[in-house]
Simulated assay, not measured.
Amino acid sequence: MRKLYYGRISTTDGQSAASQYEDAKAHGVSEKDVFIDEGVSGYHVAPGDREQWRKVEHDLRHGGVLIVRWLDRISRRYDELHRTMRRLIELGVRVECTLNGMTFDGRATDPIEKATRDAVLAFMAAQGEADYKNRAEMQRRGVAIAKAKGKYAGRQRTVDYAIIKAWRTENGASIKQTAERFGIGTATVKRASAE
Rank of each mutant, 00 (worst) to 15 (best):
T98Y: 12
T98R: 14
T98V: 13
L99F: 00
L99I: 02
N100S: 03
N100M: 01
G101Y: 11
G101R: 14
G101Q: 11
G101S: 11
M102C: 05
M102K: 13
T103A: 13
T103F: 06
T103D: 15
T103G: 12
D105R: 10
D105N: 15
G106K: 09
G106Y: 05
G106C: 10
G106W: 05
A108N: 05
A108R: 05
A108S: 08
A108F: 02
A108I: 02
T109W: 12
D110S: 09
D110V: 01
D110M: 04
P111S: 15
P111M: 15
I112N: 07
I112D: 09
E113G: 00
K114H: 05
K114W: 06
T116L: 15
T116F: 13
T116S: 11
T116V: 14
R117A: 01
R117V: 00
R117G: 00
R117K: 06
V120A: 09
A122T: 12
F123S: 09
M124A: 09
M124C: 07
A125I: 01
A126E: 12
Q127S: 08
Q127A: 11
Q127G: 03
Q127W: 02
E129P: 11
E129K: 12
A130S: 12
D131L: 06
Y132T: 05
K133Q: 15
K133Y: 08
N134Q: 15
N134V: 13
R135G: 04
R135C: 03
R135W: 01
A136K: 15
E137V: 04
M138T: 06
M138D: 04
Q139G: 03
Q139H: 02
R140H: 08
R140M: 07
R140G: 03
R140W: 02
R140A: 12
R141M: 12
R141F: 05
G142W: 06
G142I: 09
V143A: 01
V143M: 02
V143D: 00
V143N: 00
V143L: 03
A144S: 06
K147F: 03
K147S: 08
A148H: 05
K149T: 01
G150I: 10
G150T: 08
G150D: 06
K151T: 07
K151C: 07
K151Q: 14
K151G: 06
Y152K: 02
Y152G: 10
G154L: 10
G154F: 05
R155D: 12
R155E: 14
R155T: 13
Q156E: 15
Q156D: 15
Q156L: 15
R157K: 08
